[in-house]
Design a protein around this nucleic acid. Structure first.
Lengths: 191, 191
DNA sequence: ATGATTTCTTGAACTAGTTCAAGAAAAGTA
DNA sequence: TACTTTTCTTGAACTAGTTCAAGAAATCAT
């Protein structure tokens, strides 16, 4: 049974009696240690991961051989590569635990059957995808409207606990500048 | 009846007999002239717009009082602000026709009733939202990995007809740099 | 056609952020 | 405790892209 997940679903849509049992039939728990991969670039993404405890990142390797972080996921967020998941083609992204992590997995090869048994999930995933889409579009706008320093300050104030949780160089990557630059921003603030 | 839209839906999910008639009950056609607004910043967004013919942009006004384009939509794309649409709070974005445009509107106050009659639409919107989400996340990665000049070249090669269709300064805004800089890129290319 | 508006161009001075390289600090492991 | 790995800092030289200002070219409306 997955109380965190069912609670999350019920925030967005209703579920029939017995939904928990159906979910339990189709979902799995997966635990992984810090640095383990849920997906490696080049593989086909075969699951959608709902984090119960821990933190993961999705990233890509650039031409210059540096990591570029696309997305973080913490408790009660889903993480996957929807391109690869739906097209079943190799992913350009890797998904890696950056803390010891426990998550619920919806594997792609169970998804259609589960959605048939529990059609409310179409609605749930529609709504959370639309929210995530609006957020991703807003992120682009935000990036273009603000300097790196402003983006860092905003992120720090919005997610203070999270800033403590991840290495600074990952934050820099997610915010779209170099770790050196982030270090200089911090020096300026504290100095 | 909305042949373009039903064809689009059927690319992603099946529809029952009679779906066209139900859609016709719940959807409206709206035409607007170049420069008309489908949504003005400050208003609550009350519809989701599927473009049949024409082109719209969604944009925001920055602190410096310049426009920042978030999104374009051409034939067979949906455009809306999902944040405002779902929360029914005022939008920060404006949506404006940049050509004379004809679109199918799903108004927010019809949406739930329509989805109840035609639950396949939950699936349709789930799938297209997930695709759009993956694209938006990839866009951020792309922005961080490439220079303005590279982004312009890539866009030009990916959507050559579209580059002809919109003013250069809107393209510059969408790609995240100034119109002057775009002009300089073009000068360099041509000669 | 003509004037008004919208869009595009060019140059010079400037700034936010990068790159490279080296070392310091912190955290993990034995 | 000490050793290794990971993460963070600092400075100097550099570059991609901005800003401002002015004018040129297109396009639109009458």
């Amino acid at each position: 049974m997955f109380p965190e997940l069912t609670a999350h679903i019920r925030k967005f849509t209703s579920l029939p009696e017995g939904a928990e049992a159906i979910l339990a039939d189709y979902l799995e728990v997966r635990t992984c240690r810090k640095k383990d991969f849920l997906l490696k670039a080049g593989q086909v993404c075969n699951g959608n991961y709902f984090i119960i405890k821990g933190c993961c990142r999705s990233f890509m390797i650039t031409e210059k051989d540096t990591e570029l972080i696309n997305h973080f996921a913490i408790e009660y967020w889903w993480i996957t590569d929807y391109f690869s998941l739906e097209s079943q083609r190799p992913s350009e992204y890797s998904i890696q635990a950056i803390e010891d992590t426990e998550c619920v997995v919806l594997y792609r090869n169970c998804q259609d059957a589960l959605f048939e048994k529990l059609p409310e999930l179409e609605r749930y995933f529609r709504i959370i995808s639309q929210k995530a889409l609006a957020a991703a579009l807003q992120r682009v706008t935000y990036i273009f409207m603000h300097s790196g320093e402003e983006r860092y300050e905003h992120f720090r104030q919005s997610f203070p606990e999270f800033v403590q949780r991840v290495p600074q160089y990952m934050l820099a990557s997610y915010l779209g500048f170099t770790p050196e630059f982030l270090s200089k921003i911090r020096a300026k603030r504290n100095g």
